[in-house]
Nucleic acid binder design. Structure first.
Length: 377
DNA sequence: TCTGGGGTCCTAGGACCC
DNA sequence: TCTGGGGTCCTAGGACCC
């Protein structure tokens, strides 16, 4: 028997919220929402107990970054505006985002996984792909179960993550990244799902098309308009139909995805392409009336980008800006310089040149500064 | 109760060069 | 006077993901 390709997708369960629960164990089982600004720090009372802000009465433009499963039971989910979440679950505890803490636990869980299986693709703070094909034991058959070996390896990885961090995760193991990403959600939280290619029709086809990583809100609506709701519906369409409606490249990809076909290799090393900073204001600002404040924030964003570049040892040749207006329309402008830059004056100046090319009639909701075309110094 | 912040990749048109 | 292709770079917008 030739060795089989086994790719795992590991997804930490409600990651930010779970890290907060390690710090505040008294919140276990309660609806907790992470998001918003710095205003909602817990207060430590003289007796040693803590009091927490709740969602009730929240006013602002924040969104839910993560919600505990207890909060999700009220219909709260990530990306939802905090105002709406407050209407659904006013009693839910609201905690501010603490990225430093999450990054710390992110490094811990990834290092723990690497002890068992070193071939890892980073997919952000709380997800990774892992190639299990060459991990000792993964190709073993246990009794008549040809997937028993890889299941045991995946379980060992889950145990290791739990030991190292106190956090649970969900894992999908299949022959490729596309299927593993779907599989890791099939038994969430704290689950493990192993699927073979032969199980695609029974386990994957009944799912909605939006479960496929790469079919987003727009494509989802377009497919629904054509009566294509499940992955089975999509798999039933031929290539020509899909390329006709979605273009050659995306159409072909849709066809492959529906059939569980995905040859992509793991990307174990990558260089950043861009670095950016952006901010949404508490209230929409007017280019003339709020000029001083806009200028101050604009300069600050440019300086933050410069600091980020210098800290990581990069310079950017293309400097860009982003504005979102009160009608939510977003525009970008960028400028490619003769040489890469990383100092705040150069970035601020180039960003200023970009800003001159924008019509500032509407009020501004968001402002951002970006450096692209990065080169390592 | 409208919709954060940080990214990647793709497309498409125009400039410019050979 | 009017006609080519092909390739690369730059810019703007948009889809999508975590």
């Amino acid at each position: 028997m030739p060795p089989r390709r086994w790719i795992a997708h590991l997804d930490m369960d409600a990651f930010y919220a779970s890290v907060e629960l390690l710090r505040y164990p008294e919140l276990a089982g309660q609806p907790v929402v992470i998001g918003g600004g710095r205003r909602h720090q817990p207060v430590l009372l003289p007796g040693g107990t803590r009091t927490f802000s709740t969602l009730a009465g929240y006013a602002g433009r924040g969104v839910v970054t993560t919600a505990t499963y207890a909060a999700r039971d009220f219909g709260v989910h990530s990306g939802m505006g905090l105002m709406k979440a407050a209407a659904l679950a006013p009693q839910a505890v609201l905690l501010p985002v603490d990225f430093d803490q999450y990054r710390h636990y992110s490094r811990r869980f990834k290092a723990a996984v690497a002890e068992v299986a070193p071939v890892i693709e980073d997919r952000g703070i709380d997800e990774i792909y892992i190639d299990l094909s060459d991990v000792p034991g993964a190709q073993d058959t246990i009794g008549f179960d040809t997937t028993g070996g890889v299941r045991a390896v995946a379980q060992e990885i889950r145990n290791t993550v739990k030991r190292a961090t106190g956090l649970s995760c969900s894992v999908g193991v299949t022959p490729n990244k596309l299927l593993s990403k779907i599989a890791s959600e099939l038994d969430k939280p704290d689950g493990l799902t192993v699927l073979t290619q032969a199980e695609v029709p029974t386990r994957i086809w009944p799912l909605p098309v939006r479960r496929i990583n790469g079919i987003g809100p727009k494509a989802g609506v377009k497919l629904a308009d054509m009566g294509i709701r499940t992955i089975a519906d999509l798999a039933a369409k031929d290539r020509a139909f899909l390329t006709e409606h979605f273009g050659r490249s995306y159409g072909r990809w849709l066809h492959d995805a529906a059939h569980g076909v995905d040859d992509r290799l793991l990307v174990t090393h990558s260089e950043p392409v861009s670095m950016s900073r952006e901010t949404t204001f508490d209230r929409d600002l007017h280019a003339v009336r709020d000029r001083a404040e806009l200028t101050r924030i604009f300069t600050q964003l440019a300086e933050q980008v410069a600091t980020d570049l210098q800290k990581k040892g990069y310079a950017g040749r293309t400097i860009g800006i982003k504005l979102r207006f009160d009608d939510f329309k977003t525009v970008t402008r960028d400028l490619t310089l003769p040489e890469p830059v990383a100092d705040k004056a150069a970035i601020r100046h180039a960003a200023g040149q970009c800003l001159k090319r924008v019509d500032l009639a509407r009020r501004i909701r968001l402002l951002g500064v970006r450096a692209g075309g990065l080169v390592k110094l």
